[in-house]
Simulated assay, not measured.
Amino acid sequence: MTDLHPRTLATFVRSVALLAMPADAQIAWLESLGLGAPLYADELALELESGVLLLPQFERAGWVTAEARRAVEALDAVLGEWSGSVHKDFWHVDSLRESPEWARVRELASEALIKL
């Protein structure tokens, strides 16, 4: 097992917090990255993905409870359902404001954030 640095956990928690933020805040964060137009929200999921891979290590280190791990995994599963080019519209930045699916993502992210 690789030694984990607390900064890794902080970055992961930040990724969950980004997914819990209101649409306008998420869009502002995406714009701050300077990725250019058109904007896509997939960067939000990519931020989470790295930390999800480390969840077992976070849990073994005692930094994350099993309950928190399950909440994050539920969030990750919902995002995973929307992966692939067939769901390209879901990832467009306009969808952050309009999509009920993104509202569900925010809800799950908020629940996970509380448990973290």
Rank of each mutant, 00 (worst) to 15 (best):
A10H: 13
H92I: 02
A41C: 10
K115F: 00
L18D: 14
G84E: 04
S85M: 10
G80W: 00
V72Q: 01
A61R: 01
A28Y: 03
L19C: 08
T8D: 12
E59V: 00
A20H: 08
R14G: 08
E101S: 12
D94I: 05
K88H: 14
E101I: 08
A61F: 00
H5D: 13
K88Q: 14
A28Q: 09
E81C: 10
A10N: 11
E73T: 00
W91P: 15
Y40M: 07
L55R: 00
R106S: 05
S15W: 04
A77Q: 10
F12A: 03
E67P: 01
E59L: 00
L79H: 02
L55F: 00
L18W: 14
L35S: 11
V78E: 12
L44E: 11
A71F: 01
H92Y: 09
H87P: 01
S32Q: 03
A77D: 03
I27T: 09
D76E: 09
A103H: 04
E107I: 03
G62F: 00
L53M: 09
V16E: 07
V52C: 07
A23C: 10
D3I: 03
G84Q: 08
L46W: 05
A68N: 05
A37D: 13
R97H: 11
H92E: 12
F12N: 04
D3V: 05
Q57A: 11
E49R: 14
S95G: 13
R14V: 02
